[in-house]
């Protein structure tokens, strides 16, 4: 295990049924404060790799360690708790709940972390303000643009002050200005000691990362 790695993957193997394995004996190590880009052609498994490392799915073989502790074999309830407490995830298409307000979406993870919603509202509004979407707090996702939705998804991912932040094509739907805002947020997050892992095709984002891993 690499000394000081916040996330380490060893011998990771995973594949979909009736298809050749996406990864076989894949190894990687991510340190705290690192901003890492994962690149590769479509279908190479960038998103799947993020889902695996974010403990949403179990690998067929291999190990995933958070700060040296093996976590891929934890019971479902503990993996869920880790996702809620320590992991942030920005989905490719934002994946907001269309039936709830923007503020409700940002506060969603409070329920899973067992944290008081009332005491978290100000934190949520601060995040929305920081990403320039505070005025959309009471709107529904259907009433906002794709770029705003992605920034709101980022707010949601940052609500728990995550130790590891995953982002799946976070700038794919954004204009340059919005993409720069998101990139700045990743930089800030990494500077605060979090590990930020981004799956992306965006060359401008790749060049801003500390390291690039190609699949």
């Amino acid at each position: 295990m690499s000394a000081g790695a916040s996330l380490e993957v060893r011998g990771l193997t995973f594949g979909y049924p009736a298809v050749a394995p996406l990864f076989s004996e894949w190894n990687a190590s991510f340190g705290p404060g690192e901003l890492v880009a994962i690149t590769g052609a479509s279908g190479r498994g960038k998103s799947t790799l993020l889902y695996l490392m974010a403990l949403m799915v179990r690998p067929a073989a291999g190990e995933i360690r958070f700060r040296g502790e093996r976590v891929d074999q934890l019971p479902d309830s503990e993996r869920a708790h880790l996702r809620a407490e320590s992991v942030g995830f920005v989905f490719q298409d934002a994946t907001l709940d269309a039936s709830r307000t923007v503020l409700d979406n940002v506060l969603e993870s409070c329920l899973y972390r067992g944290v008081s919603r009332g005491a978290s509202i100000q934190h949520a509004r601060d995040l929305l303000s920081r990403f320039g979407v505070e005025q959309r707090a009471e709107h529904r996702p259907g009433q906002i643009s794709g770029g705003q939705a992605q920034r709101i998804a980022l707010c949601r991912a940052l609500m728990n002050d995550p130790g590891i932040l995953f982002a799946d094509e976070p700038t794919g739907n954004l204009d340059r200005a919005s993409a720069d805002t998101v990139l700045a947020a990743f930089r800030e997050r990494a500077a605060a000691g979090s590990t930020v892992i981004v799956a992306t095709h965006d060359p401008s984002l790749v060049t801003e990362c500390d390291r690039t891993m190609a699949l």
Binding site: F66, R67, E69, E78, E85, S86, N160
Partner: peptide, 14 residues
């Protein structure tokens, strides 16, 4: 195997 408390202590930026 890690317990929840240990996980929170060792991993949780939360």
């Amino acid at each position: 195997m890690l317990g929840r408390g240990l996980m929170r202590a060792t991993l949780g930026r939360g």
